[in-house]
Write a protein that binds this DNA or RNA. Sequence first.
DNA 1: CATGAATGAGCTTTCATTCAT
DNA 2: TATGAATGAAAGCTCATTCAT
Lengths: 218, 218, 218, 218
Amino acid sequence: MESKRKLTKATFDNLPDEKKLLILKTATNEFAIHGFDHANINTIAEKAGISIGSLYKYFGSKQDLFLMTIHQGTEVLMHTLQAIVPSAKSFEDKCRDLIKAIQTTSREQQQLIRLYSELTGVGNSELVQQLSYEIEAISASMYTALIKNGQDTGEIRLDIEPAMAAFLLDNLFISLQFSYASEYYQQRFKIFLGSDIEKKDSFVCEQMVRFLSSALKP
Amino acid sequence: MESKRKLTKATFDNLPDEKKLLILKTATNEFAIHGFDHANINTIAEKAGISIGSLYKYFGSKQDLFLMTIHQGTEVLMHTLQAIVPSAKSFEDKCRDLIKAIQTTSREQQQLIRLYSELTGVGNSELVQQLSYEIEAISASMYTALIKNGQDTGEIRLDIEPAMAAFLLDNLFISLQFSYASEYYQQRFKIFLGSDIEKKDSFVCEQMVRFLSSALKP
Amino acid sequence: MESKRKLTKATFDNLPDEKKLLILKTATNEFAIHGFDHANINTIAEKAGISIGSLYKYFGSKQDLFLMTIHQGTEVLMHTLQAIVPSAKSFEDKCRDLIKAIQTTSREQQQLIRLYSELTGVGNSELVQQLSYEIEAISASMYTALIKNGQDTGEIRLDIEPAMAAFLLDNLFISLQFSYASEYYQQRFKIFLGSDIEKKDSFVCEQMVRFLSSALKP
Amino acid sequence: MESKRKLTKATFDNLPDEKKLLILKTATNEFAIHGFDHANINTIAEKAGISIGSLYKYFGSKQDLFLMTIHQGTEVLMHTLQAIVPSAKSFEDKCRDLIKAIQTTSREQQQLIRLYSELTGVGNSELVQQLSYEIEAISASMYTALIKNGQDTGEIRLDIEPAMAAFLLDNLFISLQFSYASEYYQQRFKIFLGSDIEKKDSFVCEQMVRFLSSALKP
DNA sequence: CATGAATGAGCTTTCATTCAT
DNA sequence: TATGAATGAAAGCTCATTCAT
């Protein structure tokens, strides 16, 4: 809908992949550790082994760099989704796969998910709008399709609106994601379920699957 | 369990209630609008009609003031919970009441909920730990009790762990809360359900009730 | 006409006169030597013996400080004008007094006049507009009155518009001012009149008086 | 007298005229709009369709490029002067022609005149000295000759030094030029003469001619 | 107790110039 | 000759906190 403004300048795209990845990884690290406001652009440049001037040749601003790290990160996450949702498995099995994927990636990509939760606080420039739209619209359409498909195959009740079911599903998945990645939500997770959540992956998964399939079965 | 360090100094407690409320209200406003980092302590003092010196006599630091605003705010929210959860109604009716309460208070107390979502980013001092424990522990125990009670009355299935069910319930409620209060989650809400979410309160409520009661009924 | 926005904050006004003058003098120096763009706020603070924080408590921005130095400086110049123009002397004698005053003050207040010529380049914020209006409006009205008065006394021809005569008069005076104060205009002055202009004050004065009185006599 | 250091390197002179003009025109634009300090060399190169590397092959520095734009611009202005001053007309008519020329060119070559007023602030390298000498020496000698010639023909009084009269004449002309071209002086112009100065060209011209011829006639 | 002036470290961003290709 | 990516010093401004009055 909007004329997609690019987050990077051409100079960045022309960089060798190795260098591009190094820069983005360094930035992801800094932003995840210190948050957007407290992350230091000069430090990022230094740690990535480039000059500040170059950093600003590649990205127009601190915010652009931040958004780019998220953009690149979410692409990875979206691939995971796309590998699971359109498969031929049953709805219940897909849920199980999704939850397991969340449990794995939330730990592997902890920093990325922390970044995502920073997105809320960066103010609401056009770019933030655009990026968040990109991210959420994909999940929304994929989950809605997932539900509709389940309704077609008779696995999912018809008296619930697909968009609404998708919304609730995504809410549960996002919450779970944060519960594994963010320090704050991790603590809350433990308050509910005890300090040994690390060992309870399959328990959490099975209980959620049970919860979800009952909630949506006809 | 924890050595409760106080957020306020005695000097604040001795203030007339009116003044105390004015200060906290002003702070809530500033923090909700600008976020923790960009809120300006000097501005808060000015708007509350007191000197910065006094503010520092009342609260030890910016963080302490912030945590106090949350502490005071959540008390209000907890009262709502306590009015609904222990009532004599059916589980389904309690869910309905809770969702309606969320829809109402999220709009009325928008700023408060925005504050809460800032909590994640404030770092993890002892005080943050303490406060978050206070908040989450109450919800956790209340929802867990709610589920157990439902299991006792035969309204809720027995093959789901009460703590786990409570966790999922709270996840859905918190997500809904943010969806009404935070700008970012509001946009996401609309991506899923269309731009007229303001008019769909009862639809959202009924669908969620249906989802929840199916998920948990025996 | 415009709601006069103040250049200083109250905190500056409350300072002891000695300190106020030291700050303005230091700033005048820096701005005169380096020009607006190259003047260094941190250096000004340091040389004035105050912290940068304080400087920004006193003045909202670099530009505000700059404009304040001009404002204060022109006040001095305006006093000189007001001492000469409304006197009981003949028009010719007043011109002579004005030119002599320019020759003296341009040397004494060299830096101030250099500041003034920087004014053009500072961009056109509301404040610049306001300040320049203040300065020019006073000269305009005083010189116009001077001409009208001369027409009333029969010293000045009637077939020239007072405002136009005042404009030309001011043009000559300002040019002369720059010719003594600005390095560039000084060089130009010498190209026209030879390198010994320093010793030619009375010659320059008499020739100008002769030029002016002929130009305007009936 | 002075060892004329060149502003351009040979590489520039060898360029096709079209390209040379494009570069200078682009530079004039940028310098006129943003002033010397805020003009961006990289932007100029980009807009002129050449590389920064090339620009630095053509001109030694930002300052050199700036001075070159002025040098080239003043040549145009000087041609105007040379077309009027040595003509066979009366002194009064020449004045009239000069003023009219100023009114026209100040509007057409607005940017050029704005550049000229930037010259003061560029510091005082050898090159600035050289350039300003070039410019001012020509006006000085032409106006002085104009006056002397008037004295010879009996149009101009003998009791005024030609150089001095030339100086005053040039002061008035330069002031007028700025009054049409610079934003700041334009505002001042209006303060003296009202906001409709655009429509008053012939009035301004006639009043100035009257002023000048009276000032200098025997 | 109350005040509020003073502090100063710290951070984003710009841009003239260089030099390897 | 031409290119344009890389450089990095430098500067305006903010704001939590202190402490003398």
